[in-house]
Amino acid sequence: MRVERVKLHENGSVARVETAGLHYRELNSILRSLVADGADRIELHGVAGQRYIGTDLDRPVQIEIFGVPGNDLGSFLDGPRVTVHGNAQDGCGNTMNRGTIIVHGMAGDITGLSARGGNIFVRDDVGYRAGVHMKEFGDRRPNLVIGGTAQDFLGEYMAGGVLVALGLTLGKSAHHLARFIGTGMHAGVIFLRGVVEEHQLGKEVGVTQPDEDEEKLLEELVTEYCGYFEVEPAKVLDQPFVKLFPLYLRPYGPLYAPTHRGIEGPVSRWKVK
Protein backbone atom coordinates (compact mmCIF):
# COMPACT_ATOMS: atom_id res chain seq x y z
CA MET A 1 0.00 0.00 0.00
CA ARG A 2 1.24 3.49 -0.80
CA VAL A 3 1.18 4.58 2.83
CA GLU A 4 1.97 8.23 2.16
CA ARG A 5 -1.27 8.59 0.19
CA VAL A 6 -3.53 7.08 2.80
CA LYS A 7 -4.65 8.78 5.98
CA LEU A 8 -6.64 6.82 8.53
CA HIS A 9 -9.07 8.29 11.04
CA GLU A 10 -11.22 6.87 13.81
CA ASN A 11 -9.23 3.70 14.41
CA GLY A 12 -8.93 2.97 10.72
CA SER A 13 -12.63 2.84 10.04
CA VAL A 14 -12.41 6.00 7.93
CA ALA A 15 -9.71 6.43 5.31
CA ARG A 16 -8.78 9.24 2.97
CA VAL A 17 -6.79 8.45 -0.15
CA GLU A 18 -5.09 10.97 -2.44
CA THR A 19 -5.43 9.31 -5.82
CA ALA A 20 -3.94 11.87 -8.22
CA GLY A 21 -1.52 10.10 -10.55
CA LEU A 22 -2.28 6.64 -9.20
CA HIS A 23 -2.87 3.85 -11.71
CA TYR A 24 -6.13 2.02 -11.21
CA ARG A 25 -4.24 -1.12 -10.31
CA GLU A 26 -2.58 0.63 -7.38
CA LEU A 27 -5.77 2.39 -6.39
CA ASN A 28 -7.79 -0.82 -6.33
CA SER A 29 -5.07 -2.61 -4.45
CA ILE A 30 -5.20 0.16 -1.81
CA LEU A 31 -8.97 -0.24 -1.63
CA ARG A 32 -8.68 -4.02 -1.20
CA SER A 33 -6.26 -3.71 1.68
CA LEU A 34 -8.22 -0.91 3.35
CA VAL A 35 -11.37 -3.00 3.20
CA ALA A 36 -9.51 -6.06 4.45
CA ASP A 37 -8.19 -3.94 7.35
CA GLY A 38 -11.70 -2.97 8.37
CA ALA A 39 -12.30 0.45 6.83
CA ASP A 40 -15.99 1.32 6.62
CA ARG A 41 -15.79 4.63 4.82
CA ILE A 42 -13.16 5.50 2.23
CA GLU A 43 -12.80 8.89 0.61
CA LEU A 44 -10.99 9.04 -2.71
CA HIS A 45 -9.77 12.52 -3.59
CA GLY A 46 -8.43 13.80 -6.90
CA VAL A 47 -9.86 10.89 -8.86
CA ALA A 48 -9.12 11.37 -12.56
CA GLY A 49 -10.21 8.59 -14.85
CA GLN A 50 -9.12 5.53 -12.84
CA ARG A 51 -11.18 2.55 -13.96
CA TYR A 52 -12.97 -0.24 -12.10
CA ILE A 53 -13.20 1.57 -8.79
CA GLY A 54 -15.02 -0.56 -6.24
CA THR A 55 -14.64 -3.91 -7.96
CA ASP A 56 -13.49 -6.97 -6.00
CA LEU A 57 -14.70 -5.60 -2.64
CA ASP A 58 -17.22 -7.82 -0.96
CA ARG A 59 -18.25 -5.71 2.01
CA PRO A 60 -20.85 -2.94 2.11
CA VAL A 61 -18.24 -0.22 2.66
CA GLN A 62 -18.91 3.37 1.76
CA ILE A 63 -16.75 4.83 -0.98
CA GLU A 64 -16.87 8.57 -1.64
CA ILE A 65 -15.32 9.65 -4.92
CA PHE A 66 -14.29 13.26 -5.50
CA GLY A 67 -13.39 13.91 -9.12
CA VAL A 68 -14.27 11.92 -12.20
CA PRO A 69 -13.91 8.15 -11.98
CA GLY A 70 -13.06 6.26 -15.18
CA ASN A 71 -14.99 3.63 -17.10
CA ASP A 72 -16.50 0.56 -15.46
CA LEU A 73 -17.01 2.23 -12.11
CA GLY A 74 -18.28 -0.49 -9.78
CA SER A 75 -18.09 -3.28 -12.33
CA PHE A 76 -19.15 -6.59 -10.75
CA LEU A 77 -19.89 -4.49 -7.65
CA ASP A 78 -20.83 -6.76 -4.75
CA GLY A 79 -21.97 -4.72 -1.80
CA PRO A 80 -20.26 -1.32 -1.49
CA ARG A 81 -22.08 1.98 -1.67
CA VAL A 82 -20.22 4.20 -4.10
CA THR A 83 -20.99 7.92 -4.23
CA VAL A 84 -19.52 10.02 -7.01
CA HIS A 85 -19.29 13.74 -6.38
CA GLY A 86 -18.99 14.49 -10.08
CA ASN A 87 -19.77 12.70 -13.32
CA ALA A 88 -19.28 9.01 -14.07
CA GLN A 89 -18.04 7.72 -17.40
CA ASP A 90 -19.05 4.69 -19.48
CA GLY A 91 -19.97 1.31 -18.08
CA CYS A 92 -20.94 2.56 -14.63
CA GLY A 93 -22.29 -0.45 -12.68
CA ASN A 94 -21.33 -2.95 -15.40
CA THR A 95 -22.68 -6.39 -14.39
CA MET A 96 -23.11 -5.22 -10.79
CA ASN A 97 -24.51 -7.70 -8.31
CA ARG A 98 -25.26 -5.85 -5.07
CA GLY A 99 -24.66 -2.40 -3.64
CA THR A 100 -25.48 1.15 -4.64
CA ILE A 101 -23.94 3.70 -6.97
CA ILE A 102 -24.97 7.34 -6.58
CA VAL A 103 -23.76 9.81 -9.18
CA HIS A 104 -24.01 13.54 -8.45
CA GLY A 105 -23.87 14.46 -12.12
CA MET A 106 -24.17 12.57 -15.39
CA ALA A 107 -23.19 9.02 -16.33
CA GLY A 108 -21.98 7.80 -19.71
CA ASP A 109 -22.99 5.01 -22.07
CA ILE A 110 -24.19 1.55 -21.00
CA THR A 111 -24.87 2.65 -17.43
CA GLY A 112 -26.03 -0.47 -15.58
CA LEU A 113 -25.12 -2.90 -18.38
CA SER A 114 -26.30 -6.39 -17.41
CA ALA A 115 -26.85 -5.36 -13.80
CA ARG A 116 -28.30 -8.25 -11.81
CA GLY A 117 -28.94 -6.48 -8.53
CA GLY A 118 -28.29 -3.29 -6.61
CA ASN A 119 -29.29 0.30 -7.24
CA ILE A 120 -27.92 3.07 -9.42
CA PHE A 121 -29.05 6.67 -8.99
CA VAL A 122 -27.84 9.22 -11.51
CA ARG A 123 -28.77 12.84 -10.77
CA ASP A 124 -28.77 14.03 -14.37
CA ASP A 125 -28.63 12.35 -17.79
CA VAL A 126 -27.08 9.13 -19.06
CA GLY A 127 -25.62 8.11 -22.42
CA TYR A 128 -26.54 5.42 -24.92
CA ARG A 129 -27.91 1.97 -24.10
CA ALA A 130 -28.41 2.62 -20.39
CA GLY A 131 -29.80 -0.43 -18.61
CA VAL A 132 -29.03 -2.74 -21.53
CA HIS A 133 -29.73 -6.36 -20.63
CA MET A 134 -30.48 -5.82 -16.95
CA LYS A 135 -31.79 -9.01 -15.34
CA GLU A 136 -33.76 -10.09 -12.33
CA PHE A 137 -34.78 -13.23 -10.58
CA GLY A 138 -37.00 -13.63 -7.54
CA ASP A 139 -36.15 -10.91 -5.07
CA ARG A 140 -32.90 -10.01 -6.84
CA ARG A 141 -33.76 -6.98 -8.91
CA PRO A 142 -31.64 -4.04 -10.02
CA ASN A 143 -33.08 -0.51 -10.02
CA LEU A 144 -31.67 2.21 -12.27
CA VAL A 145 -33.02 5.69 -11.59
CA ILE A 146 -32.02 8.44 -13.99
CA GLY A 147 -32.87 11.98 -12.95
CA GLY A 148 -32.83 13.38 -16.45
CA THR A 149 -33.09 11.66 -19.77
CA ALA A 150 -31.09 9.19 -21.83
CA GLN A 151 -29.71 8.64 -25.30
CA ASP A 152 -30.96 5.96 -27.68
CA PHE A 153 -31.62 2.29 -26.88
CA LEU A 154 -32.55 2.97 -23.28
CA GLY A 155 -33.38 -0.40 -21.67
CA GLU A 156 -32.43 -2.41 -24.73
CA TYR A 157 -32.73 -6.19 -24.40
CA MET A 158 -33.97 -5.79 -20.82
CA ALA A 159 -34.44 -9.18 -19.18
CA GLY A 160 -35.51 -7.77 -15.84
CA GLY A 161 -35.09 -4.90 -13.44
CA VAL A 162 -36.64 -1.48 -13.04
CA LEU A 163 -35.52 1.50 -15.07
CA VAL A 164 -36.83 4.97 -14.25
CA ALA A 165 -36.12 8.22 -16.10
CA LEU A 166 -37.49 11.27 -14.30
CA GLY A 167 -36.97 13.82 -17.05
CA LEU A 168 -35.92 16.53 -14.57
CA THR A 169 -33.34 17.96 -16.98
CA LEU A 170 -35.73 18.28 -19.89
CA GLY A 171 -36.69 21.72 -21.11
CA LYS A 172 -40.20 23.07 -21.49
CA SER A 173 -41.25 20.56 -24.15
CA ALA A 174 -40.31 17.83 -21.66
CA HIS A 175 -39.55 15.46 -24.55
CA HIS A 176 -37.23 12.57 -23.76
CA LEU A 177 -34.28 12.23 -26.13
CA ALA A 178 -33.96 8.48 -26.49
CA ARG A 179 -35.18 6.57 -29.50
CA PHE A 180 -35.54 2.77 -29.74
CA ILE A 181 -36.50 2.67 -26.06
CA GLY A 182 -36.87 -0.92 -24.87
CA THR A 183 -35.84 -2.52 -28.15
CA GLY A 184 -35.68 -6.29 -27.65
CA MET A 185 -36.98 -5.94 -24.11
CA HIS A 186 -38.48 -9.22 -22.86
CA ALA A 187 -38.85 -8.69 -19.12
CA GLY A 188 -38.55 -5.92 -16.53
CA VAL A 189 -40.20 -2.53 -16.67
CA ILE A 190 -39.40 1.07 -17.64
CA PHE A 191 -41.10 4.11 -16.10
CA LEU A 192 -40.81 7.49 -17.78
CA ARG A 193 -41.83 10.88 -16.49
CA GLY A 194 -42.07 13.41 -19.29
CA VAL A 195 -43.14 13.17 -22.90
CA VAL A 196 -42.30 10.28 -25.15
CA GLU A 197 -43.70 9.79 -28.63
CA GLU A 198 -44.68 6.46 -30.06
CA HIS A 199 -41.92 6.59 -32.67
CA GLN A 200 -39.33 6.69 -29.90
CA LEU A 201 -40.31 3.26 -28.62
CA GLY A 202 -38.91 -0.08 -29.62
CA LYS A 203 -41.18 -2.50 -31.41
CA GLU A 204 -41.29 -4.87 -28.49
CA VAL A 205 -42.75 -2.58 -25.81
CA GLY A 206 -46.27 -1.75 -24.86
CA VAL A 207 -47.44 1.37 -23.02
CA THR A 208 -49.72 1.62 -20.04
CA GLN A 209 -50.01 3.34 -16.65
CA PRO A 210 -48.34 2.04 -13.50
CA ASP A 211 -50.63 0.03 -11.24
CA GLU A 212 -50.97 0.64 -7.52
CA ASP A 213 -47.99 -1.46 -6.45
CA GLU A 214 -45.86 0.16 -9.07
CA GLU A 215 -46.93 3.61 -7.93
CA LYS A 216 -45.74 2.64 -4.48
CA LEU A 217 -42.42 1.38 -5.85
CA LEU A 218 -42.00 4.59 -7.82
CA GLU A 219 -42.69 6.65 -4.75
CA GLU A 220 -40.01 4.74 -2.86
CA LEU A 221 -37.45 5.10 -5.62
CA VAL A 222 -38.23 8.77 -6.19
CA THR A 223 -38.02 9.47 -2.48
CA GLU A 224 -34.65 7.76 -2.30
CA TYR A 225 -33.46 9.69 -5.36
CA CYS A 226 -34.67 12.96 -3.86
CA GLY A 227 -32.94 12.18 -0.58
CA TYR A 228 -29.58 11.88 -2.32
CA PHE A 229 -29.89 14.95 -4.50
CA GLU A 230 -31.93 17.29 -2.35
CA VAL A 231 -35.00 17.49 -4.52
CA GLU A 232 -38.54 17.85 -3.23
CA PRO A 233 -40.27 14.47 -3.87
CA ALA A 234 -43.62 16.15 -4.33
CA LYS A 235 -42.21 18.11 -7.27
CA VAL A 236 -41.24 14.89 -9.00
CA LEU A 237 -44.37 12.96 -8.16
CA ASP A 238 -46.60 15.78 -9.39
CA GLN A 239 -46.78 14.22 -12.83
CA PRO A 240 -47.98 10.74 -13.68
CA PHE A 241 -45.52 8.22 -15.05
CA VAL A 242 -45.90 6.16 -18.16
CA LYS A 243 -45.05 2.50 -17.92
CA LEU A 244 -43.33 0.61 -20.74
CA PHE A 245 -43.54 -3.14 -20.58
CA PRO A 246 -42.43 -5.99 -22.84
CA LEU A 247 -45.17 -7.19 -25.16
CA TYR A 248 -43.61 -10.54 -25.72
CA LEU A 249 -41.80 -13.06 -23.58
CA ARG A 250 -40.19 -14.40 -26.76
CA PRO A 251 -39.86 -11.44 -29.11
CA TYR A 252 -37.85 -13.37 -31.65
CA GLY A 253 -39.49 -16.77 -31.35
CA PRO A 254 -41.43 -16.55 -34.64
CA LEU A 255 -38.32 -15.80 -36.66
CA TYR A 256 -37.25 -19.39 -36.64
CA ALA A 257 -38.35 -22.49 -38.47
CA PRO A 258 -37.21 -25.94 -37.44
CA THR A 259 -35.16 -28.05 -39.82
CA HIS A 260 -36.90 -31.19 -38.66
CA ARG A 261 -40.23 -31.98 -40.18
CA GLY A 262 -42.13 -33.34 -37.22
CA ILE A 263 -41.17 -30.69 -34.71
CA GLU A 264 -43.60 -27.87 -33.91
CA GLY A 265 -43.42 -24.93 -36.28
CA PRO A 266 -42.41 -21.40 -35.26
CA VAL A 267 -43.58 -20.56 -31.79
CA SER A 268 -45.97 -17.78 -31.02
CA ARG A 269 -44.53 -14.80 -29.24
CA TRP A 270 -46.12 -15.86 -25.97
CA LYS A 271 -47.67 -12.61 -24.86
CA VAL A 272 -46.67 -11.52 -21.41
CA LYS A 273 -49.63 -11.85 -19.03
Binding site: F137, A159, G184, L249
Partner: peptide, 27 residues
Protein backbone atom coordinates in the same frame (compact mmCIF):
# COMPACT_ATOMS: atom_id res chain seq x y z
CA UNK B 1 -38.31 -24.47 -24.66
CA UNK B 2 -35.00 -25.02 -22.91
CA UNK B 3 -35.37 -22.37 -20.20
CA UNK B 4 -36.49 -24.53 -17.31
CA UNK B 5 -36.97 -23.08 -13.83
CA UNK B 6 -33.42 -23.97 -12.83
CA UNK B 7 -31.86 -22.61 -15.99
CA UNK B 8 -33.85 -19.43 -15.41
CA UNK B 9 -32.41 -19.18 -11.89
CA UNK B 10 -28.83 -19.59 -13.05
CA UNK B 11 -29.29 -17.14 -15.92
CA UNK B 12 -31.57 -14.73 -14.03
CA UNK B 13 -34.25 -14.51 -16.69
CA UNK B 14 -37.94 -15.41 -16.67
CA UNK B 15 -38.84 -19.07 -17.24
CA UNK B 16 -39.87 -19.76 -20.82
CA UNK B 17 -38.42 -16.64 -22.38
CA UNK B 18 -35.72 -16.95 -25.00
CA UNK B 19 -32.30 -16.25 -23.47
CA UNK B 20 -31.12 -13.47 -25.75
CA UNK B 21 -27.40 -12.93 -26.09
CA UNK B 22 -26.81 -9.75 -28.09
CA UNK B 23 -24.56 -10.04 -31.15
CA UNK B 24 -21.85 -7.75 -29.76
CA UNK B 25 -20.89 -7.23 -26.16
CA UNK B 26 -22.17 -3.71 -25.71
CA UNK B 27 -19.12 -2.68 -23.74
Amino acid sequence: EKISAEVATTRMIPTGTDALSPAPQHD
